[in-house]
């Protein structure tokens, strides 16, 4: 590892441990880490904006006449800092909201509402089509012929059996089809009952109430799944950090993890002893 790599590992590990120290209680290491994170992000964004937008799109613009109006609209946003003329920023907001909703409403309506409605609009029951039934007859015939010609154990017979089995699944009302139908029905029930739950202009009484309770059940299943996924996601993040902490604990990283840990614990114990830590709220 080069010196630069080692310095990077020390920095990454140090900041990780600083932020993890919040699990014990709020402390200056955590605050330092948090503020550094915010500062670095904002600095990075500023540099990127200047070099990726301001210089190529505004400063070196091909046609200044096209650039000036948006730049003026952008600058009007800054009038919010001057209370007397802050009303000017409304012009910018009017532009942003007008442009944004003009762009968003049709796109969202098409991709989110119409497409999803289309996917929900499915036949609740499916029956084999004429073509599928024909394919089943053909497959059964091939199987019988192959069996007669090659016997029961030949690989060709096995292949024909497999083909006949899959043809049977689509050519008859099989469990595969039943499973798909049940899924469709559950989906349909879910969409309907949840939307019913969010109806505000009718009283939820009698059957409507029962139906909207079903909607709540669907919502709870969704939230349960979401909760589980969130936990899993957080573990993935923790795993990655622990991996780095482990990587930095060896001799090739100059024992970054143990050294930083010992120093941190030392300072925290010292602060605890001198009573400085009691000013911070704990968990």
């Amino acid at each position: 590892m080069s010196f630069g790599d080692i310095a990077g590992l020390w920095l990454a590990t140090g900041l990780t441990l600083f932020l993890f120290s919040f699990l014990y209680r709020d402390n200056p290491f955590y605050k330092l880490g948090e503020h550094l994170y915010l500062g670095v992000t904002i600095g990075y964004m500023l540099v990127k904006l200047v070099y990726e937008t301001w210089i190529p799109k505004v400063w070196n613009a091909e046609n200044y006449a096209l650039v000036i109006p948006p730049v003026i609209i952008g600058f009007l946003l800054l009038t919010r800092f001057v209370p007397k003329v802050s009303w000017l920023s409304r012009w910018s907001f009017a532009f942003i909201i007008g442009y944004g909703s003009g762009l968003a409403i049709p796109a969202t309506f098409t991709s989110i509402i119409l497409k999803q409605a289309e996917a929900t609009t499915r036949p609740l029951v499916t029956v084999p089509t004429a073509a599928e039934q024909k394919a089943l007859e053909a497959a059964e015939k091939t199987l019988a012929d192959t069996r007669a010609a090659r016997g029961n154990e030949a690989p060709e017979t096995r292949a024909a059996e497999k083909a006949a089995l899959s043809a049977r699944r689509s050519g008859t009302y099989s469990w595969v089809r039943a499973y798909a139908d049940v899924t469709t029905i559950i989906l349909f029930l879910g969409v309907f009952s949840v939307l019913f739950y969010f109806f505000f202009s009718i009283e939820h009484k009698g059957p409507v109430r029962i139906f909207s309770r079903v909607g709540v059940l669907f919502l709870m299943i969704y939230f349960g799944a979401s909760y589980g996924y969130t936990v899993m996601g957080r573990f993935a993040l923790l795993y990655d950090r622990l991996l780095d902490v482990r990587k930095a604990s060896g001799g090739d990283a100059w024992f970054a993890t143990p050294i930083i840990l010992v120093l941190m614990i030392g300072v925290l114990v010292w602060r605890h002893r001198t009573g400085k830590a009691s000013e911070e709220p704990s968990h």
């Binding site: 969704y222 799944a225 979401s226 996924y229 969130t230 899993m232 996601g233 993935a236």
Partner: peptide, 8 residues
């Protein structure tokens, strides 16, 4: 692909 939080 998405993060776990957004999967549902």
């Amino acid at each position: 692909g998405s993060t776990a939080v957004n999967v549902p």
